[in-house]
Structures are given as C-alpha cells and as structure tokens.
Design a binder for these strands. Structure first.
Length: 576
DNA sequence: CTGGGGAGGGGGCCC
DNA sequence: TGGGCCCCCTCCCCA
C-alpha cells in the first residue's frame, strides 16, 4: 500500500510552511538577507547543513560562496527538488554560481545537476560570482577557515576543482530523477513580485554596517552558538550586492556589533572548553536547580526564535503576526480572536486557505502565547501607541495594514510607513492635547497600571531645565527631552524587520532584534549561561555569589533581584 | 493544588 | 547609541 503522491504532498506542505515561516527553526544569513527554514529539511539534504544545524540556530554563510539570490534558488531546490533559475543572470552564470554554492553546501545532487547543465552548454564550471579569488583559491581559503571552525563533519566538505568538475559524482541519482522538464527557467522575481532587480532590497539597514572587515560578522561573533568552533560560515559580509529576497527572506537591520568583543566583556572559559559546543552544554555544577535551569535555557532560545515567531506567517519578507496586535483587526489589545482572524486572512492571501489545518494549529499556539506574552497581552494599552491596522481604519485602507495614525494614511509595509513617518515633522506627530484626547485616556489607564515616576520626583527645574510640554516631566538635556517626547508620539519609528513590531527607540529595537537572532553576548564565567544584556548577567552573577542585596523591611527577607523584592512586597501589601 | 520564591526574558525609559 | 534600571510576564521549583 503506497500513497502515490505522499512525498510530493509532504514537500509541498513543507515548502508552504517555509514560505510562512511556520515551524521554521533556523535562520540562514546570507549577506544581509535572512532565510528561514527547517533544520530537518536542511539536515536531510546536506551533511554540511546537518552539521551546522546541529548546534546553531543562526547560520551565516560565506558570502563569497553564495549570495542571497543563489541561496534562494538553493533553498527552493531543497524544498521542491526543482531549480528555478533567475533570469537576472545568464543561465551559464547562474549554474556556475549554483554549482559553487552547491559544492560549498555539499548539495551533491544540485551540484551534479548544475555540472551537467554546464557541460551541456559547453562551458566549464566556474565560480558564478566574480571574485578576486579563483574558485580553487577561494575554496581553499574557505576551507582553511573551516579547518578551525567547522563541526566534526566538515572534513566531508566537498571541494570542487576544475578537474573534478567533469567527473561523475557518486550521488548523481537526482540527475536521473530530475527530468529537464523539472528545471524551470523563469524569472523568480516575477514569482514573488517583491524583488528588486539586482538592486539592494530596500527593506532595512545593512547588516554589514559596522561589521568587522573579515573574519565573520559581528553578529556571528555575538551569536551564542557561534564560537569559532561552531560557525564554519564565518561570512565576510560586505561588498556584494544582494539580489533578491524570497518570501521567507528578510533583511537585517543594523545591529551594532562592534565595540568590545563579548568575550572581552565577559570572558568565557577558553579552551579546552571552546573546543566543545559549550553553549549547549554548560558545565554541570551548583545546585540541581541550576542544572535544571541550564537544561532549560537552550530550549528556550532554540533557534533564536520564540515559538510564536516561528509560527507567524511571512509577508513580503517580514515575519508577520500580531503579537502586539499590530495587525489585528480587532482593535487595541485584541488577543486571541483577532490573531486568529489575522492569520486566517494571511492564509487566504497566500494560498487561498489551502491549508485549512494550519490556522487551527497556529491559533492553538497563539492561545498559549497570548496568555503569556508580556505587555502585548496585558491590556492593550501598551500597544495603543503602535501604528497598526485599526478597526475604524480598516475599510479605508484595504490591504494597507500599516496606518499612520496622525494623518490616517495606510501603507502596505512597515518600511513604507516608516518612510512616511519621516516626512512628518515632529510637531505634526506630536500629540497635542486637543488631538490626543483619546490617547490621553489610554495613557491614563496605562499610568494607573504602570505607576510611572511622577513629575515631582524629578529634581528642581534648575537641574532639569528642559520640560516636556505634554506631561511636564523635566530633563537635564534637550536630547533626553526629545527622546522622552517621542514617547508621546502615536507612531513608533523603529520597526523590527523580522516581526514588524514597532519601537520608540532604535536601541530598544536593536535589543529586540537580538532576541530574534539569538544573540547573547554576555556569558557567565561560572556556568556558561548567556544573556542578551549585561544587566541580566550582573543579576545572574548573584546566583553564584549568593549576594542578596535587596531586603524586605517588613520581614527581613532577602532577595537577589529587586523585582523579586517588589513582588514580595506586594505579597505583604495585597489583601490576601 | 496552591502560594511564594527564584530566575529568565521582554519592553520602556532615562542617562 | 548603548548601558542601566525599572516594570512586567512567565515558568519552574518547592514547601
């Protein structure tokens, strides 16, 4: 008994899931493009990928071996078994580039296919990308790095040479499986509709900005899993143009990855520990409780993505999904039901609701997430300042999910909205009392909950001469006042390019990005645990030192963290 | 099962 | 622009 189309259907589903980012558990970074995929699929298609995804959730590929356009084709091939050749390059160039990439990635079937195509067209397989190094030298160079940075299986890395280009490969089985009919020559740009023709996708800031010049990206260096032993990719991100992005691709904003190396900030155990995948196996020690936590944390950061992010669909390369109600159609703070409606809409938009089972799966997940997830689920007042589709606006904007509240214009993407926001003067964006009456109500509600510092707690006006005209808070310098004033805006100028969430401050957005990318630069010397923030590490170190600087004045109880003292004090004060 | 404590993580905001 | 702190939510463990 055999279902004839089982494999095909399965692949189809997987590819659709990839397009939506559903259950994707790995991010592949190629230059400034991000691709999301499933570890299982990658591991099944290449031993090289298999070794990479074993410990890393964020994979950085060598940009001299593969560029975003080529990698998109590679990924398409992995998920479909079909080659969709870009029309941006000649076929020959394209196959050469693909061959280089396939060899680098140890996709032997794909390499064989390209080799065969090149052979037919009568040209030698050459590196598809103009490079200052020949393929041979280039690969050797790469291999040198691999020798110190690849996982154990890296010795299997296939190094193509001009001579073996014509030799049959042991695993050319796919050549037989794939007929020429299955090689689609066409414009993939047309397929996705959002590809810039060879130009830089104007979706975000350049990842390469501020990156170290050669060995690995700063991000790579900051990646919790990417110590030198585990990140064979060590891409030198810089010069080449990224060509295109597919549905599951997005560009990275600039993460400030310079400054002191994380290891310098918080030295982690050096070799021989470094020769092991340390982040996934922190040395066991201390109490069983700590061990339990340590067992837990790699799971938490698995893939560098939170479950909710993994399961959000992608739209135009941006991972979508209203964790904060950004795109929910139910208005402020709407949670489950609006999420559901949102996702259903996405399903319809993308595949006509073909996968009827997925919304229920995803909504099932989002149920739990919405119960749990931070401020978004709090009450909605936090998201009141976000620019997102609102119920009242909906009819007027159609597919323009991103609405500038001050002027009411709708935009199809957060980027476009952001660009538009820039055109407003700050005065226009500023919430004047008369304009922001309804917002005031929201904020008062928020104040009740969050009990912000009262203006009176600020120092004298002499020390703080710069006063906010909206809330009367005063500040020492105009820059801080300006920063504060932005909190009164209805727009949040800094969108996350992965999830689309908007932030009032760039730094907050950058920090937020770290959580998507699993960047945890701050490592505990004691247990190897890593954190996204220095402050967290400082807090954490008290676990090891036993220091409990926060004491309850009522019962004398001591706490390592202030927040837990506060929580404890509530226990005293709340009528129980 | 429940309440309290410990601790990880996220966002806001000021410096 | 990043660091530091505050606040919140959440999960886990344990009594």
């Amino acid at each position: 008994m055999e279902l004839p189309n089982h494999a095909k259907q399965l692949l189809l589903q997987l590819n659709q899931q990839r397009a939506k980012g559903f259950l994707c558990d790995v991010i592949i970074v190629v230059e400034n493009a991000l691709f999301r995929a499933h570890k299982n699929i990658l591991a099944a298609s290449s031993i090289y990928f298999k070794s990479l995804v074993l410990h890393d959730n964020l994979i950085n590929l060598d940009t001299e071996m593969v560029n975003p356009s080529v990698f998109r084709q590679v990924l398409d091939f992995i998920y479909t078994g079909k080659l969709l050749c870009s029309s941006e390059q000649s076929n020959e160039q394209n196959y050469s580039a693909l061959l280089t990439a396939a060899s680098y990635l140890q996709l032997h079937d794909l390499a064989a296919l390209c080799r065969r195509k090149l052979k037919r067209s009568g040209s030698k397989p050459l590196p598809g990308k103009p490079s200052t190094l020949g393929l041979h030298g280039r690969v050797r160079h790469n291999n040198q790095r691999l020798s110190s940075s690849t996982p154990a299986t890296s010795h299997n890395h296939y190094i193509p040479t001009p001579s073996d280009a014509d030799q049959p490969q042991p695993d050319e089985g796919l050549r037989d499986k794939l007929s020429d009919d299955e090689m689609f020559i066409g414009s993939s740009a047309g397929k996705n509709g959002n590809l810039s023709s060879g130009g830089e996708p104007d979706l975000g800031l350049d990842l390469s900005k501020k990156s170290p010049p050669s060995i690995g990206t700063g991000m790579d260096a900051l990646s919790p899993h990417s110590n030198s032993q585990e990140s064979p990719q060590s891409a030198s991100v810089s010069t080449t143009n990224s060509a295109s992005l597919d549905d599951s691709t997005t560009t990275l904003p600039s993460l400030d990855t310079t400054g002191p190396e994380p290891m310098e900030l918080t030295p982690t155990p050096r070799a021989p520990e470094d020769s092991q995948p340390k982040t996934n196996s922190p040395p066991p020690r201390k109490s069983t409780r700590q061990v339990a936590r340590k067992k837990e944390w790699p799971k938490r950061e698995a893939s560098g993505l939170k479950a909710e992010d993994r399961e959000r669909p992608l739209l135009n390369g941006v991972i979508m999904g209203p964790k904060e109600g950004r795109c929910s159609s139910g208005g402020y703070g709407s949670s489950f039901t609006s999420d559901q409606s949102f996702q259903c809409k996405e399903e319809e938009d993308e595949d006509g609701g073909e996968n009827g089972h997925e919304p229920s799966e995803e909504s099932g997940q989002s149920d739990g997430e919405n119960r749990g997830k931070g401020r978004g689920g709090e009450s909605g007042h936090q998201s009141a300042n976000y620019v997102y589709r609102q119920q009242g606006f909906e009819p007027a904007f159609g597919d323009n999910l991103y609405v500038c509240i001050p002027c009411g214009k709708g935009f199809p993407s957060s980027e476009q909205l952001n660009a538009h926001v820039e055109t407003h003067t700050e005065d226009e964006l500023y919430i004047k009392e008369e304009v922001g009456a309804f917002v005031k109500e929201e904020e008062e509600e928020a104040e009740d909950l969050s009990a912000p510092v009262a203006p009176t707690t600020f120092g004298s006006s002499e020390l703080r001469p710069f006063k906010c005209t909206v809330c009367s808070k005063s500040y020492k310098d105009p820059a801080t006042l300006r920063q504060h004033e932005k909190s009164h805006w209805l727009t949040r100028p800094f969108p996350c390019n992965i999830c689309g969430k908007m932030f009032t401050q760039r730094g907050t957005m950058t920090r937020h990005m770290r959580s998507h990318l699993g960047l945890k630069p701050f490592a505990c010397e004691e247990c190897g645990m890593r954190f996204t923030r220095q402050y967290r590490l400082t807090e954490h170190m008290r676990v090891h030192s036993g220091e409990k600087p926060y004491e309850c004045q009522l019962c004398g109880g001591k706490f390592t963290q202030q927040r837990n003292l506060i929580s404890h004090l509530r226990m005293h004060t709340s009528p129980s």
